[in-house]
C-alpha cells in the first residue's frame, strides 16, 4: 500500500468501518511508515480533542417551546378532553364528508382558482426541489434520458426545451401530480438558481385564457407566490409552468426562448 492510499483509509480506520483485508494491509503499512503512523496519531488526537473540547450550547427555552409547538399543534386543541376513539371516528366521518364534497367544490371552483392552485402546486414542487428535500428521480444532463423518463410516465410527448442561448443547464427530470393529472418536471440550472419547468395536459383548464396577457409575442400568465416567480403558457394542448427565483423579466425571457415562437 502506498502512502497516498493509506491516507485515504485513515478515517475509516478511526471509524472502524474498514474492510478486514484493507485494515490488515493498512496496518502493515503503518508498521513500516513512520510518516503515516505520525499522521494517524495527529488525526486521532485532533479528533479526540474536538470531541472533548467543543462545548454543547444549551437550547434557549423559547426555542424549545416553539419547536414543541411546531411538533405538537394538537396540544392546543380545545377538544383534548375527548377520548381518542371519539376524535378518530369524528375525523373519519369529517374526511368522508369532505371527500364527498370534492366533485362539488371542483365544479364550483372558478377559473382563477384553478390557475391559482396550479401556481401554488408548481411553486411548492419547485421549492421542494430547490431545498433538495425532494431530489429529482433522475439527476442528469442528458435530454434523451429525461425525455424517456417523463414520456413513459406522463403519457404525452415532451422533449425538454432548452434556451436558445445555451444559458440553461439541464439538471434532472421527475414526474409529479397536481390537480388530477401527471406532470412532467424538468429541472434546469441558470447561474446559481434552479429553474423548474412543469408540463401538464391542458384539458379542462380552459381557464387559461383568463388573466393571460401578451408579452413579446407569447401569451402568458405571470404570478408570484412565496417570493417565487411563475410564468404559465399554453402550447400544443399542454400547459407549461416555469418556476424560479430568477427576476420576473429574466424568467419571461427564458419562457420565450423555450416556447416555439
Amino acid at each position: 500500500m502506498t502512502c497516498r492510499e493509506a491516507s485515504e483509509y485513515l478515517q475509516e480506520l478511526m471509524d472502524t468501518t474498514l474492510a478486514p483485508d484493507l485494515e490488515r494491509r493498512l496496518r502493515a503499512h503503518l508498521d513500516t511508515c513512520s510518516a503515516c503512523a505520525g499522521e494517524l496519531t495527529l488525526q486521532r488526537e485532533i479528533r479526540r480533542r474536538v470531541a472533548a473540547g467543543v462545548p454543547r450550547q444549551e437550547v434557549p427555552s423559547a426555542l424549545r417551546q416553539k419547536v414543541r409547538e411546531i411538533l405538537a399543534p394538537r396540544e392546543k386543541w380545545a377538544w383534548g378532553f375527548l377520548p381518542r376513539p371519539v376524535i378518530r371516528w369524528g375525523m373519519a366521518v369529517a374526511a368522508l364528508v369532505l371527500i364527498s364534497l370534492i366533485p362539488l367544490t371542483l365544479l364550483q371552483q372558478n377559473r382563477e382558482e384553478r390557475i391559482a392552485s396550479i401556481v401554488i402546486e408548481a411553486v411548492n414542487d419547485h421549492r421542494s426541489f430547490a431545498m433538495r428535500v425532494n431530489l429529482p428521480t433522475l439527476p442528469t444532463a442528458d435530454r434523451e434520458q429525461v425525455r424517456e423518463l417523463v414520456e413513459a410516465k406522463v403519457g404525452f410527448q415532451i422533449v425538454p426545451p432548452m434556451g436558445q442561448r445555451g444559458e440553461l443547464r439541464l439538471v434532472g427530470g421527475d414526474v409529479t401530480y397536481f390537480l388530477d393529472r401527471k406532470v412532467a418536471c424538468i429541472l434546469y440550472g441558470k447561474g446559481s438558481k434552479l429553474v423548474t419547468l412543469l408540463v401538464l395536459r391542458d384539458e379542462g383548464i380552459e381557464a387559461t385564457e383568463q388573466g393571460f396577457r401578451q408579452v413579446n409575442g407569447l401569451r402568458v400568465y405571470t404570478a408570484t407566490y412565496k417570493g417565487t416567480g411563475v410564468v404559465l403558457w399554453k402550447q400544443d394542448n399542454l400547459l407549461y409552468s416555469l418556476v424560479s427565483e430568477l427576476p420576473q423579466e429574466e424568467l419571461l425571457g427564458v419562457a420565450k426562448e423555450m416556447a416555439k415562437i
Binding site: S34, T41, E45
Partner: peptide, 27 residues
C-alpha cells in the same frame, strides 16, 4: 490527492506536543 499526502511538519509531532498545542483555544 497530492495535498492529501503532504507530510510537511507532521513528522516528529508526538502526542505530548499535540497535548500542549491543543490546550490553546479550540473554539
Amino acid at each position: 490527492s497530492a495535498t492529501l499526502v503532504e507530510r510537511e511538519g507532521v513528522e516528529g509531532v508526538g502526542s505530548e506536543s499535540i497535548d500542549r498545542l491543543v490546550r490553546m483555544d479550540l473554539h
